[in-house]
Design a protein around this nucleic acid. Structure first.
Lengths: 222, 222
DNA sequence: CGGGAAGAAATTATCGATAATTCATGGCCA
DNA sequence: TGGCCATGAATTATCGATAATTTCTTCCCG
């Protein structure tokens, strides 16, 4: 019962499990057995249950009534769905954030873009990419919208990690820079248009070819 | 322990509580005490806890770590936020549903519009209105998107009931008919544009004037 | 008479255990 | 030999109880 700072137990468990699901450590369809998880965290199954519900609300797990909880499966259809929802919602958020964007925020976003370009691995790139997107939409001050966007980002990241397990090669993110340039010029509509295209380019190509074969080029943009 | 057909206990409890919150029977800020709810439903507090979490995921309740759960408060800001999210997501859904809309679906939607125009009270109107919106977006076949829209509808309905408690007067919904006309003509973009305006007109005016005084005109559109 | 602290009541969060359901294995019969 | 039913093991869902935290009340002091 070593309690951390002030994070509740269910939140802690759900966060750790979410990381495992997103990173691919827990594969789609894998069963989440409450007793096992409870034993691992040194807790009972009641907090674990709540953690499972939290994951289900995020779309990372699915719960069949008397059959237990599984890691949510995802196919290209859902990836596209998430991408389109992200495009719609992030554009909305950016439009509202536009008037409240300060020089400091844009500088920080540019820093995040640079960090992304210099990332040694996918994980670092994803973190920087998420930071960029979060920075430019947060000033909209719409909590419900931001929470929804966060959940969609989790789903996107999950897909990202599932495809690029190894062989990572960083490249400069021209879209991010174009968005920043437009925002610096006060052209929010232009920035929003670029952002929409940028986000929707997720999953524009099939995920895998034959088993073990060469993986097709696969456009992921954050 | 009279169990119904096959609906799980937490789902049942959360549904009933959601209805009460939406209808205004449970006022914003009201505490939800798990033992009381448990006693009312003849259950323990474990399923009640899960029901609370479900409500929180829907945005109908807020949970402070060791302080319990309260009915979520909502102000005009959040109403606008929900309206804009609805506009963005329903437009997205309609664009994808467009190609799959059949004559039968549009006829049913027109029937729902008529039912709304002839509604004797707000509750009936809201039900018909929700049916209309659901009908025209469901064929998009994007489960995550539809679930998000449903949650937003719940928030909208909650706001609707909170303002129009009594003195209800039905009026013909021209927007719905215009949307249907555009869809029948195959002009999905036109329909989407009308839908966006239609939804965003929620909460365009202040909610209440002085206590008990004349209530200001208050544009709610579904 | 007002503010603050200490105690008591209430409520939340977690645990261990029980009941009910599902999944798997093995045996039986056609 | 193949399919089906029954029994057993595993797992989920719920319950009752305990521990910890918060909040309300009341009393004391300035």
């Amino acid at each position: 019962m070593a309690s951390e700072k002030s994070e509740t137990l269910p939140v802690r468990i759900s966060r750790v499990l979410a990381e495992r699901i997103i990173s691919g450590q827990l594969e789609p369809g894998a069963r989440l057995r409450q007793d096992h998880v409870a034993a691992e965290f040194g807790a009972s199954h009641v907090p674990v249950r709540e953690a499972f519900q939290r994951l289900e609300a995020q779309g990372l797990a699915v719960s069949e009534p008397r059959r237990g909880v599984r890691v949510a499966a995802f196919d290209l259809r859902e990836v596209r769905e998430v991408a389109e929802m992200r495009a719609a919602l992030e554009v909305l958020a950016l439009r509202h954030a536009g008037p409240h964007l300060t020089r400091a925020i844009l500088d920080e976003a540019e820093e995040a873009t640079r960090a992304g370009d210099n990332s040694p691995d996918v994980r670092a790139w994803e973190e920087a990419n998420r930071r960029f997107h979060r920075l430019i939409v947060t000033p909209c001050a719409m909590p419900r919208l931001l929470a929804a966007i966060d959940d969609l980002h989790a789903a996107s990241a999950r897909f990202l990690f599932s495809s690029w397990r190894s062989d990572w090669e960083a490249r400069t993110d021209h879209d991010h820079r174009a968005i920043l340039a437009a925002l610096r010029a006060g052209q929010v509509d232009e920035a929003a248009a670029i952002l929409a295209r940028h986000v929707q380019w997720i999953g524009s190509k099939p995920v895998r070819t034959a088993a073990g074969g060469t993986r097709d080029v696969f456009a992921i943009q954050g």
